[in-house]
């Protein structure tokens, strides 16, 4: 019996909790991408690097706060820096929109041209990020690392396996729930939110209802700035900041968007979790898990791992391919053309 409990705790600790928090981070980023898809109608390749840039702003502000001795007790100081970083991110995004995207919007350029412009923005943004913080790994989480440590859990339950809850995981999940709740409330219940959906649904008819497109675009970028910054900071608190790993978030984020259905906000959330859990389930080594469950003679001697962790983004890709082959519209019917 305790063996079964131990096995379950093992999975909770190494697959379920990390999957939940990574999935939340992906979901927030995917929500931003899907909103841009729905309203501005292009795949924003700059998402990962914009996330990195807003995290860089947060890190710099955090260092500044720490320099003046301002911290947030057992919570990470980055939370204090977050609101300012959101504003900074918004300013950057609005500048980019003014100088890059707006022109193509007015020209009614083909989506692929705007995608290409976003690739240009991706490299400029990535350049700024690397110029400011370099290519190295930075840890900027301070405060208590754990809410419950593995040791405390073991002492509490008497099990051999511990279930550690990291502060960053707890924060990620709570903030993500609140934020997603807010975005959905906004889209479903407020007049502006409904206007956004209307604009996404039928642009011409939205204009015929008197909806101003640049208001819609502005609100979209505001939501994107909030989602992007928070997603980036939560990811950074959880795993540390590194420019390339943010850049590489692009693939799982896109995969999440497409799995869920392009332009569908609920789809982006579901997609985020599909990707994160697939990654963790397929790259976890089940050896220990089966040692708990199987009698001694049947116990495995290999790692029992489907895929090395160095290939974790291949999982996103494979899921992407499966979706494109079987159901290109995604789970919630997205736009295919």
């Amino acid at each position: 019996m305790t063996d079964i409990l131990n096995a379950i705790v093992l999975l909770l600790n190494f697959v379920f909790l990390p999957g939940l928090s990574y999935g939340s981070q992906l979901a927030l980023g995917a929500l931003a991408v899907t909103l841009v898809y729905a309203i501005l109608r292009f795949a924003n390749f700059a998402q990962g690097d914009t996330m990195a840039l807003s995290t860089v702003m947060t890190i710099l502000l955090t260092w500044l706060l720490q320099h003046f001795g301002i911290t947030l007790g057992f919570m990470p100081t980055a939370l204090l820096a977050l609101p300012l970083a959101i504003i900074g991110c918004l300013i950057y995004i609005m500048l980019v929109d003014t100088f890059v995207y707006r022109y193509y919007r007015r020209q009614k350029s083909k989506p692929i041209t705007i995608v290409m412009a976003s690739v240009g923005v991706m490299f400029v943004t990535g350049g700024i990020v690397r110029f400011v913080l370099g290519p190295d790994h930075h840890i900027f989480a301070d405060g208590e690392r754990f809410i419950i440590t593995a040791r405390e859990f073991k002492a509490m339950t008497g099990l051999a396996e511990g279930l550690a809850i990291k502060t960053s995981q707890f924060l990620t999940i709570t903030i993500a729930i609140l934020l997603v709740g807010f975005v959905f409330y906004f889209l479903q219940r407020t007049k502006t939110g409904k206007a956004m959906r209307a604009y996404a649904d039928n642009e011409d008819l939205a204009l015929l209802s008197g909806i101003e497109p640049h208001n819609i675009v502005r609100v979209t970028w505001i939501l994107v700035a909030i989602l992007t910054t928070i997603a980036g900071v939560l990811y950074g608190l959880d795993k540390g900041f590194m420019a390339t790993s943010y850049h590489q978030l692009l693939l799982p984020t896109f995969a999440a968007v497409i799995v869920g259905g392009i332009g569908s906000p609920p789809g982006a959330i579901i997609g985020g979790f599909v990707i994160s859990f697939s990654e963790l389930i397929l790259t976890y080594a089940y050896k220990k898990f089966f040692i708990y469950l199987l009698p001694e003679i049947l116990q495995p001697d290999s790692l029992l791992q489907f895929l090395g962790t160095e290939y974790k983004f291949a999982v996103s890709f494979v899921i992407l391919v499966i979706v494109l082959l079987l159901r290109p519209t995604g789970i919630f019917k997205g736009k295919v053309i």
Binding site: K194, R197, A198, D201, N202, D204, L205, A206
Partner: peptide, 10 residues
Amino acid sequence: PQTDNVFPTM
């Protein structure tokens, strides 16, 4: 309009 005169997902 003659066509596309509603918001289908609303």
